[in-house]
Design a protein around this nucleic acid. Structure first.
Lengths: 343, 343
DNA sequence: CTGAAAGCGCTTACAG
DNA sequence: CTGAAAGCGCTTACAG
């Protein structure tokens, strides 16, 4: 492995000059720079990032904390982050951790407590004060995407508004018996993504004078935010004899797909007897004719990286923190899964 | 940020002793070790991995090259790798790169050419000789999982055998008009995963005396290995008037789901008029009643890490390279999507 | 069992 | 514009 000393020797300059010529920082005569670059290319020199980190204090590495990799939203976000980071010459260190458990503590107390990353972006996870403190103590910026991190900049869609919009869409179609397939923990964690969606639904319903007679539990069913989760929740909800809802607002498209599957299984004609709307804009949504509130996780990942780089002082210092404050883009896309309420 | 010198001072020992006490390498009196550990804990010292790498030459970091994150197989593998790496105290640096393109070159010529990772595991990607050489020159071991890397240890299921088994299953059910929904490039890249599956299908068919009259193109359709890919390929295949196949062997479960969707759309009753089998054991397979050849990507990821750690000399040197040579586990799981051929 | 010294491969003031 | 020197934070022979 050639070191910078080898380059310097070959180019007939000092290590300092070689370093300046290669990094582009500091003055170097054009001719000298060319000679150094040629020498580096000739022996295949590539600077050791670890050695550089040691003195600059910058690792050019960003940690990404994410609970899933194999759910559409998370996978898209991750790909978006990776693409943007790579383009900026940064590495991505992945911390894929279960929502709770000993692994999570280990990631925060050991992995992220070291000086291996310059910043962390937390995707779809609610960080505790303690977890934020661990990272803040190392003076590393945090960006929360989707989830929450107390005191950290947050990039997210307005989940409450998205849920309200989805619910409005169903109301306008004349539905009154509407149920919500919520994410697990929606009732308990009010500020979480699933909590906000549930709240947006309930508020819109009650503003329409449709407070549920049987209590909230009669119109909100929680399940894992996945296709199988939606399937089993919908199976219970729709299979129960009695006042079956005519419309379902699913907390995610994957949950909606599961619900569609359950309705098929139960022989409920769609959309005539059952309308379904989701949130996400999943890549399969078009194929399944699912009406949904689209969001753009790949782009969200890119924005998160932009914010991170800004916080790290890369690029134009003058620019404000991108997307700070304003909620991220969403769009209602109406397809065949929603129609007028049966009469 | 406390450094090891701070710990040493507080514990009243030298940096060398502090280092030995904390790392567990070298002799340290039990009492001294306790004192050092207490001091480290007191000031929240955690060794800088970069500084350690510089002298040990080990980064405790593994690079993962993977073309997708958001396809079931790849997502599962990634989670399996991450879990195993974390457990071993290693970081995972993600290189999610498009199958071809300038980004790919950049990853190999810059990112992986540096001394930032100890090893790389390449998932579902066929590395060129040049790419392997870049990494080998840095003396970093490579493990290929699913794809191929010339000269590197390979972990994979026997794709040819899996395809043969799937085809056999359909043949035994009396099907003779069987088509294969292959992955893109299956015909061109014989040694790739999709190429092997295609070959296994064709060989089994011809051994059964069922060489296609219309040429290979009449029974093999290539598409992207995704649900939408399978959908559009199957739509073409099944929508065409004439001798419609009675069974489909899809190169992956996601392709199979797409085909099921296409059949529904075309009003073809399943499984009575059309049997479908896939490969993967996708988490949705059970829900959709899909017969498939299961594989276990999470476990495969774990095995890949085991192999990497072994190559890096961690753990028992005596153990042989895990799973070297022998193909990884698969299992035929019969569900409702396959049945006897219509007569 | 412990410490002083050297060194891993860079970059950055500081002189000149 | 360039070089000598110091130093980032560790670990590892080498003495003792």
């Amino acid at each position: 492995m050639p070191a910078i000393a080898d380059v310097a020797r070959l180019a007939g300059v000092s290590k300092a000059t070689a370093s300046r010529a290669l990094s582009g920082r500091g003055y170097v005569a054009a001719e000298t720079r060319r000679r150094v670059q040629a020498a580096a290319a000739q022996i295949g020199f590539i600077a050791s990032p670890d050695a550089a980190s040691l003195v600059t204090g910058r690792t050019k590495n960003v940690g990404v904390v994410i609970p899933f990799v194999n759910r559409w939203f998370f996978g898209e976000v991750l790909e978006g982050i990776e693409r943007a980071l790579l383009a900026a010459g940064y590495d991505l260190t992945l911390y894929n951790l279960a929502p709770v458990g000993p692994e999570r503590d280990r990631v925060f107390d050991f992995f992220l407590a070291r000086k291996r990353v310059d910043a962390v972006v937390a995707v779809g996870v609610d960080l505790t004060d303690r977890e934020v403190a661990v990272i803040a103590r190392r003076e590393k910026p945090i960006i929360a995407l989707g989830g929450t991190a107390p005191g950290a900049p947050r990039l997210a869609i307005d989940d409450h508004a998205a849920a309200a919009l989805a619910t409005e869409h169903l109301l306008r179609l004349g539905h009154t018996r509407i149920a919500h397939l919520a994410g697990a923990g929606a009732g308990a964690a009010a500020r979480s993504v699933q909590g906000q969606r549930r709240a947006g639904f309930l508020q819109t319903m009650s503003e329409a004078g449709l407070a549920p007679r049987g209590g909230v539990e009669s119109v909100v069913v929680e399940s894992e935010m996945s296709l199988p989760g939606g399937y089993s929740a919908a199976l219970q909800l729709l299979g129960h004899p009695g006042d079956r809802p005519t419309a379902l607002f699913a907390a995610s498209d994957e949950v909606a797909f599961g619900a569609m599957r359950a309705a098929e299984r139960l022989g409920i004609p769609m959309p005539s007897d059952l309308s379904i709307i989701g949130i996400d804009g999943h890549e399969y949504a078009e194929l399944f004719g699912l009406t949904t509130i689209e969001q753009y996780p790949g782009e969200q990942g890119r924005l998160a990286v932009e914010a991170v780089l800004h916080l790290l002082g890369e690029g134009d210092e003058a620019d404000p923190l991108p997307a700070s404050g304003a909620p991220l883009a969403t769009r209602l896309v109406v397809r065949s899964s929603t129609t007028a309420a049966p009469r």
